[in-house]
Every structure is written in C-alpha cells, then in structure tokens.
C-alpha cells in the first residue's frame, strides 16, 4: 500500500498570506518613511528608530520568557510597533523616551492583554500616549530643523496652521522639508508605503479614505477661524500625523473593526475626533487620541455593524407578513 496519508478537514489548500508575511509587508512599507526621516534629520532620527525598535523586540522577548509563553518575536509585529512608535516621536528626543515608550507599548499595552490579537488598543499609539504624558516637553518640542539638523525653536507648522497662519509651500509639505515628528514630515514617503500596503492587499482602503476624507472635509468647513468653508483641506491632511495614522495606525487589524462597513465608520469616527481635538481641544494634534478612542469603540462597532446575511430579506418579508396577518 501507499505511504501514510494525511487526513484533515477541508479546505486542503491555504492562501499564501500569513501573519508573518503581512507584518513583513508593513515593515517594508515603513522603509520609505524611515529613509526620509534619516535624510532630513540625520543620525539622531536613526538612533530614535533603532532605540524604539530594539526596545520593542527585546521587551517582547523578555516578557514572553518571563511568563513562559512561546516567543513570538519572529512574527515581526514587535518590529512594526517599535518602528511606528519611533516615527511618532520628534527627532531630538532623549533616547530613553523611545526605549521606555516601546517597552510600555509591548508589555503593558500588548502582552499583558494576551499578546498579538488580543490587545484592545494599538500598542504603538498607547506607547506614544504614555511618553507624551510622561515627558510632555520632550515629545512636543524636541524638534530639529530639517537638513541642517540643529535644534529648532518655535512651533511646528501645525500650530501655525491651527492659528490660521500661512504655512510652508505644498512641495515642502509633500517632501517633508519642515518641522515635525520623524514619520509625519514626508507625506510622499508615507503615501508610498500606504500605496504599497493597498496594492499588496494588506490594508483595507476604507479606513484611510474615510479618515482622511472626513478630516479633509472638516478642515475645509471649519479650518479657517471665523469663517466657514474656507479651510485648506490639503494642508490639513498633510500637516501633523494624520497620514501616518490613517495608513499605518488606524488600519491595525487587531484594534479596528472586522467588517468592511464597520471600518468605514471607524475611519469617519477617527476623523471627527481628530478635528474636535485639533480645533476645539488643547492639544495641537489629535491623531493619537482619536485613533485610541476609536480603538476603544471597536468592539461596539463590531457588535452593531454586521453585514446582512445571505437571504435576510426573506426573513424580513416573513416578519412583515406575520405582523400584517396578526392584525
């Protein structure tokens, strides 16, 4: 007779995409943003990114060893978290900020809740929120002038924009020749990564489109102080961390809804909260908290926004008939 045959339940073939492959795709998509950051802000940017990434991976390894769980460093999710956190920080922060931030992100925000798949907020954003609350001065003022790489004084363009003042040329905003966090300056680099993710089928277009669309529309309507419908939607989207958030943070599988429609609502909600914080809140930028808040709303969205099952209208019809027959 033949060799022993394997018996499993159908299906007997699987799609080529694995969690590891997906995470690797995200890492690849982040490369342009990292390169842009290093070009504009030099070695300091590189140090921040390396510190946050290494800290994330080491934290994951140590925690899993400590609680005797299988080590999952190989799935690249910790790398993604580390790089993302690094990209949200200003280039001039002391290195302990990304190190502590990544450790917090991995241990407190992700592993304590069960690791990949069971964390309820985006780890990178939770890490950023933590370091923002721990060392607010470092995280909101350690800017460097691009290219010259000397310490910059003054506010980021977003502050000026919020006040209704003119901000740099669109070209500068697109390329990234301005003050800001590592990953929020170069729009082109972020878009490149975002498009790669879309083409590879890693992320759903609904979240970034709904998010940026809502934000752009809101900026157009309310963006100019004292006047309606005169804002500048393009600059509103390009300034600040909205692009990075829309393509890389809000699209995190674990903390966004599972249904296509739910994702649209998620994006719209995040856009609205970002607007609220930007124009009516104290913080200069609301992307972090907007996405974190929508992360918290995700179970709610998943519960109530479900697709209509195949053949549902027959049930609707039957109920209607029963109602009318009962009268």
């Amino acid at each position: 007779m033949t060799d022993r045959l394997l018996i499993t339940s159908s299906p007997h073939i699987r799609a080529p995409k694995t969690v590891r492959g997906i995470m690797l795709d995200v890492v690849i998509a982040l490369v342009p943003a990292c390169v842009a950051a290093v070009i504009f802000f030099g070695v300091k940017a590189l140090m921040v990114l390396v510190a946050s990434t290494v800290s994330a991976v080491v934290s994951e390894y140590l925690y899993e060893k400590a609680v005797k769980r299988p080590v999952t460093v190989g799935d690249f999710s910790a790398v993604v978290t580390g790089v993302l956190l690094g990209l949200t920080l200003p280039p001039g922060v002391p290195l302990y900020v990304p190190i502590v931030g990544s450790a917090f992100a991995i241990v407190i925000a992700k592993q304590i809740f069960g690791g990949l798949g069971t964390n309820f907020v985006n780890p990178a954003l939770a890490g950023r929120a933590f370091v923002l609350a721990a060392w607010p001065l470092h995280v909101t003022s350690a800017w460097l002038n691009p290219l010259t790489m000397d310490a910059a004084t003054g506010a980021t363009p977003l502050h000026a924009f919020k006040g209704g003042q003119a901000v740099g040329s669109l070209t500068d905003l697109l390329i990234g020749n301005r003050l800001g966090s590592l990953g929020e300056t170069s729009a082109v680099a972020i878009l490149l990564g975002g498009i790669y993710l879309l083409v590879r089928g890693v992320i759903d277009y609904r979240i970034p489109v709904a998010y940026l669309g809502t934000l752009g529309l809101g900026v157009f309507v309310f963006g100019k102080p004292g006047a309606l419908f005169q804002g500048d939607p393009l600059r509103g989207i390009l300034l600040g961390g909205a692009l990075l958030g829309a393509f890389f943070m809000a699209t995190d599988y674990v903390t966004s809804p599972v249904t296509p429609k739910g994702r649209t609502y998620f994006g719209i909600g995040a856009g609205l909260i970002t607007l609220l914080i930007r124009y009516w809140g104290d913080y200069p930028e609301g992307v972090t908290y907007a996405i974190l808040l929508m992360n918290l709303a995700t179970p709610l969205i998943d519960r109530f926004v479900v697709p209509k099952y195949y053949g549902y209208m027959h049930d609707v019809e039957a109920r209607r008939r029963a109602r009318e027959g009962g009268r």
């Binding site: 798949g117 599972v258 249904t259």
Partner: peptide, 12 residues
C-alpha cells in the same frame, strides 16, 4: 495555528 489577529479577511 496562531491567534486570530482580527484581520477580517474571513468576513469579507
């Protein structure tokens, strides 16, 4: 078999 990451592919 890894934990579910809630990517939603099965839903789609």
């Amino acid at each position: 078999v890894l934990p579910c990451v809630r990517c939603g592919r099965c839903v789609e």
